[in-house]
Design a binder for these strands. Structure first.
Lengths: 179, 179
DNA sequence: AAAACGATATATCAAAATGATACATAGAGG
DNA sequence: CCTCTATGTATCATTTTGATATATCGTTTT
């Protein structure tokens, strides 16, 4: 199978803004990006090693003065090129796994109250996430003239719009199930 | 790491309605379920073998009269129990990977027209999927008194509601990017 | 009648991702 | 001084993907 490590593009995208260590990258992914992409150390470190080998990123000299090792990576011209080619590639794969919907779909195997409870659990999580997204939004919309902030803003409003649709659906579903 | 094969639950859910072969299971997953869960042969066959070993499913006698081998599986009492325990488990993991949003987030690395094109591609796919969902919906709402159909209907309306929210967002995003 | 083709059916493999764990240092608070 | 949390790199078993191999069946084309 051909090379298809999606995590590479996440890392290249992050490195296109600033030099980062593997640990930094993990923190970035666990932040705002976490709403639409995940990544673990188990994929980040091997990806960095592989991309160094193929010349997409380069290891910077250890600038830490203490004893703790710290490997900062810098994106190369070739890395920028790979990132831009991916952006231009018209094939996209949006891979969604909603365990909530899976449980809903097979809800008939249990009592209806279990399904109602699962909808409650989903709703709670959505509401909590929405609070975070609202904070991101009001922070970002202050500086939409910044190109990057505009893109971040759009991903946030995508989240808000879909999460608000989730909440409306929850209310409708509950009503139908309680009839 | 503890046992955590999510594909097991998909298979158990499907087998709780009817006896199926691995190939049948793949077809079911590629149908309506595909909107919220995916599964490949490479996970289905090993899962069936493992679940037979742990007594969650059992292999039925080969009822095919010809020479082609065909292995039908039946869910056991233990399997039903596992399915119901999963439904009652309050921990859910909705794992969403939107490559579209990833490209949007890193859009600054390329021309703005690339981002606009990527939004168009996303919108086309969403519209096509919505057509399918509308057909499912009108077919299912004729018999909502059937318990199972009610659950299927709810997963379909979830899809419709979120996909319609996607479309509204596309329009807004385009407007903002073209300003 | 033969050939070609697509659907049916099981199975395996390399590559990728997850989630956990291991190990070690730095800094802050009690 | 000790404990706890954050920082930092790395690896491992397990799971999943997507591709490929192999073979039969039924239908359509030549």
């Amino acid at each position: 199978m051909a090379k298809d490590r999606k995590i590479d593009l996440v890392i290249l995208g992050l490195l296109s803004h600033e030099d980062l260590t593997g640990y930094d990258i993990k923190k970035r992914i666990d932040g705002a990006i976490n709403f639409f992409w995940k990544g673990s150390f188990g994929s980040i470190y091997p990806s960095l090693t592989a991309m160094e080998g193929s010349g997409l990123v380069q290891r910077l000299k250890d600038d830490s003065c203490g004893g703790r090792e710290k490997i900062r990576y810098h994106i190369t011209k070739k890395g920028i090129e790979a990132l831009r080619n991916w952006l231009k590639d018209e094939q996209v794969c949006n891979d969604l796994k909603y365990e909530t919907l899976l449980k809903l779909y097979f809800g008939g195997a249990e009592d209806r109250n279990i399904t109602l409870r699962n909808i409650d659990i989903f709703e709670e999580k959505v509401k909590a996430d929405l609070e975070v997204l609202y904070v991101y939004k009001s922070s970002l919309e202050k500086e939409l003239d910044n190109e990057d902030h505009l893109y971040y803003y759009l991903t946030v409003t995508f989240g808000i719009d879909t999460y608000e649709a989730y909440l409306k659906w929850c209310a409708k579903a509950r009503k139908l199930l309680k009839r």
